[in-house]
Simulated assay, not measured.
Amino acid sequence: MLVIRPIKETDYPALLQMAVGSGIGFTSLPVDEPLLREKLAHSIRSFASDIDHPGDLHYLMVAEDTETGEVVGTSAIDAAVGMASPFYTYHLGKVVHASRSLNVYNVVETLTLTNDYTGVTELCTLFLQESHRQGQNGRLLSKCRFLLMAEHPQRFNDSVIAEMRGVSDEQGRSPFWQWLQDNFFSVDFPTADYLTGVGKKEFIAELMPKYPIYVNLLSKEAQAVIGEVHEKTRPALRLLEAEGFCKHGYVDIFDAGPTVECPLKLIESVKHSFKVTISIGTPKDGSSEMLLTNARLQEFRACVSHIELDSSSQQAVISEQAAKALEVSAGDSIRIGALRFEQ
């Protein structure tokens, strides 16, 4: 069984291993020891903080295999992006060039550099080792964040976003960045991605075009990937779309991957999750497999397990294995949610 919990100091070696394995384009896990250690420490401070509003807080969780004790995945929430350093995105818009006298009317797409998402909550750092990409593990790792936000909504912004990884090849070459590199930056995509991941974003303001970019001036290869996701990211995008997330014309400044967003209160797992009081036993045959969380913060735990549910009385039976994973006892309340929502 996989259990999701807040990261702790002893998880650093596993965090570093996952940063190496996540590859180029996974900006939120750069292979940089000081930054990873600060990210870990920032998360520990965030979970321990006593606040009632969003702020510069980072909640980093890991997936632990309870049979082996191995840490095999990460999942995180940034409560309010852009508070410590600028959060850049491109917005895809339109301008019209028209002449009534010449009977000319042209609509041209543009990319404009913005900080429009400053202060919103971001889902980030979702990574699962290939050895555990099976069953409901991916859904658990992604969706547990929604139940955490449902239980503690005051800690998060009313709007939630997720930046989806854009198109790049196995060597980390991005068609979109290649055009920017050739014309403005003169540094390759892996270097730019790494610098951003370690917080050295000054070069963006210094070298990024100050005016809107006309999309039709980009190379055909760059135009083709605007708003498209990396093939390995498609399952994550489908899951978020089923939760109510959609595109609003914002794309990443490096690989042009789409940003999707949804109001917190309209996220399906937030809307439909609810709390029940538990007893511990053996759920009957035919019981539902659901996402379970212990409804705490600093000692947050989440897992997937079968549960015998009596909705009318808000009572439920969970197994001893699930109770141990969640660190709960009979009579405690847990928050539960569905594993799937159909689009």
Rank of each mutant, 00 (worst) to 15 (best):
G197L: 04
M18K: 09
L2P: 02
G82S: 09
L123V: 11
D32G: 07
L128T: 04
A48C: 11
D193A: 12
G197N: 05
M149L: 08
H42N: 13
L309S: 06
I280R: 03
F184M: 09
A41C: 07
P209E: 08
L16M: 13
P212D: 13
R238H: 13
I253V: 12
K210R: 15
P153I: 10
D169S: 11
K247W: 12
T125S: 14
V270A: 02
H91E: 13
T277A: 08
C124G: 10
I267F: 05
T66C: 11
D32K: 00
F245Q: 02
I267H: 03
P283A: 07
E151H: 09
R5K: 11
G82I: 11
H58F: 09
C246Y: 12
F176Y: 13
A236D: 01
A256G: 04
I334A: 00
T112Y: 07
T68M: 09
E327C: 14
T110M: 10
L326N: 03
V251H: 01
L217C: 14
N294H: 05
P6E: 06
D32R: 00
F300P: 00
A48F: 12
E163T: 06
K232M: 11
A338L: 14
E221Y: 05
L29T: 02
A256S: 08
A79K: 00
E170D: 13
R234G: 03
P30R: 05
H132D: 08
L92T: 05
P34E: 11
D65S: 10
K247A: 10
E268V: 05
L126T: 03
E170R: 14
G55V: 05
S333Y: 11
E268K: 15
E231F: 12
I307G: 01
A224H: 11
I307L: 14
L180I: 09
F146I: 00
T10C: 12
I334M: 01
V71P: 02
N216C: 13
D193I: 06
N157K: 12
A84N: 13
Y250D: 03
I213N: 02
A162F: 03
V95H: 13
G166W: 00
A302T: 04
A302G: 07
I213G: 02
P263D: 09
K210W: 13
L239W: 07
A150M: 07
G172M: 02
V20H: 14
G257W: 00
V160E: 03
L266V: 12
R296F: 12
A76W: 04
E151R: 08
A76V: 06
S186P: 00
Y105T: 10
I336Y: 00
P283S: 07
L297C: 07
L29W: 07
V81N: 02
E241Y: 07
Q181R: 05
V62W: 02
P190C: 12
G73Y: 00
M164K: 00
R45G: 04
S159H: 14
E299Q: 15
V198L: 07
A325R: 04
K39W: 01
L339D: 04
I4L: 06
P190Q: 08
A236V: 06
C124P: 04
V62Y: 03
M164V: 10
